[in-house]
Design a protein around this nucleic acid. Structure first.
Length: 217
DNA sequence: ACGTCCTCCTGGGGGC
DNA sequence: TGCCCCCAGGAGGACG
């Protein structure tokens, strides 16, 4: 559910609130969410580390640790990162889905809650160890993403436009909701084949992608 | 290589 | 009131 603008907001928020904090301990309630690491390895490598810069790539949140390792979080469809823990933020969640709880040395806590468990937590040295990250396509708000580039990208594709725009290897960050919005505003049917588009139609899509994504930020 | 479809999960809502 | 079924839709993998 969270798409590029939401993930960007979460990233900025975390950067403001938890950067510089030292992790006192971590509790993992469902180790199935952990990828590229075992439960034991995760705990020993994360405890006592200090949070450094927080970045985003596509819908992935990348938390740099002072050890050089990266804690990468994908929220899936229903994942939430809650900080700080207060009455208001906890009122709408179900505690049994608190899969990861990070406690800092100041006793504040960061909770990863995910009802449907589609979210994932990785611990890696290099972000490209996460296949989903390594394969990510162009960032739609990047200045390198121009109309000319987009036309060339669309031209050679035979996918239906909606599924193509949702493909993270093609463009990064768009999901169902924003793709629907972009297609609606562009007055383009979601099932049309990409290679059938005129340059003008692609231009329209291009402008709507940029505008829909920047409105929220 | 490429495009589509299925699967992982749980909670909420509609139908009866 | 309660139960069952379907739907939500990110992304990896299976399949053709």
């Amino acid at each position: 559910m969270p798409e590029l603008p939401e993930v960007e907001t979460i990233k900025r928020d975390l950067q403001k609130k938890i950067k510089g904090k030292k992790i006192k301990n971590v509790v993992v309630n469902i180790d199935k969410i952990l990828k590229k690491t075992s439960l034991k390895e995760f705990v020993t490598k994360v405890e006592n580390r200090i949070i450094q810069e927080i970045n985003r790539r596509g819908k992935y949140i990348i938390i740099n640790l002072d050890s050089g390792e990266k804690l990468i979080i994908h929220l899936g469809m229903t994942g939430l990162l809650i900080y700080p823990i207060d009455q208001k933020s906890m009122a709408n969640i179900i505690p049994k889905h608190n899969h990861l709880i990070i406690t800092f040395t100041d006793d504040n806590q960061l909770v990863f809650n995910d009802v449907r468990r589609f979210g994932k937590v990785y611990l890696v040295c290099d972000i490209n160890e996460v296949e989903g990250v390594a394969k990510l396509g162009i960032e739609p708000l990047d200045e390198n993403f121009t109309q000319e580039v987009f036309i060339r990208m669309i031209r050679k594709k035979k996918n239906k436009i909606k599924s193509l725009l949702m493909k993270q290897e093609f463009i990064t960050g768009l999901g169902n909701i924003y793709v629907n919005e972009v297609l609606h505003r562009s007055n383009i049917h979601p099932l049309r084949v990409a290679s059938s588009f005129t340059d003008e139609e692609i231009g329209k899509l291009f402008r709507e992608i940029k505008s829909v994504l920047s409105e929220v930020e």
